[in-house]
Nucleic acid binder design. Sequence first.
DNA 1: CGCGGTCAAGTGGCT
DNA 2: AGCCACTTGACCGCG
Length: 297
Amino acid sequence: MKIGYPCINETLDCSSGRTFRLASYSDERLIETVTANLACLQRILAFNVQHGFNFFRLTSGLVPFASHEVNTYNWQDHFKADLKKLGDYIKEHNLRISMHPDQFVVLNSPNPNTVKNSIAELVYQGSILDLMELDATAKLQIHGGGGYGDKPTALGRFAEVYHNQLPDAVKARLCVENDDRTYSLQDCLYLHELTGIPIIFDNLHHECINNGEPMREAVEMAAATWKPERDGILMMDYSAQAPGERKGKHVQSIPEQLFHDFLVETEGLDMDIMLEIKDKEASAYKAVALAKELGRL
DNA sequence: CGCGGTCAAGTGGCT
DNA sequence: AGCCACTTGACCGCG
């Protein structure tokens, strides 16, 4: 089991996701920003190694406007060696890596332009992992997309795009996560049947919408969609409901009792856990300590 | 130099 | 009808 947190480290005084506005785009600005982002990423990874946080999600903002037409610069060549070096570090320390393309990536949109932009974004994020020379256990994590009032048809559209339009390099890394309002675990399992895509399990989203599966059973069902020799073990997002806030909103800090209970409930199941908790590594310390106590690390 | 309006992109739920 | 949230607030113009 590996435990980690997404994108941002709040201890270090740098960001690996510095961007800038479209209006101020220039190649020089791009090079400068990506150089700083990658330097920061290296610092974050070293921090993570030092503290036993062996799972990390790279920010989508590593290369600003990477899938936008304004950016015609060959950043892939320019940063090839830097990315490979980062990849070597990741492999040397056996870190698990994911990326989570944002809400604008909708593969089942009825709008062909949205699908086109979505694919371009997936190609960009996949190419980061490719240039790092990471294997297919490094994943791209997206949601099913919109429901459009007819989920089976919408998922059929997802599958069609998957089979006919996605490059193999993206297909090898693509995963789908159950979301908190449209596509439940069961909906994702249907999509898995159509495509073979592994399902990333999100416990809080599962609490928001489900078909009555108990937590342990749900984890097992998601885990069964992963081919260990290609995909590695199950990745999951762990969070808890922020008290008194909108349903699905992430807590500020990890509720240790709840996380303890979750680990007990899933005893014997292996998985890598991404903590979607607002205070980031502050909660990761606690989660790692709990997992050690229970003999899970 | 600090504040706050605004920022590439989609969707759906809430007010 | 408009706002907010989403994997994450950060950027940058203005006073």
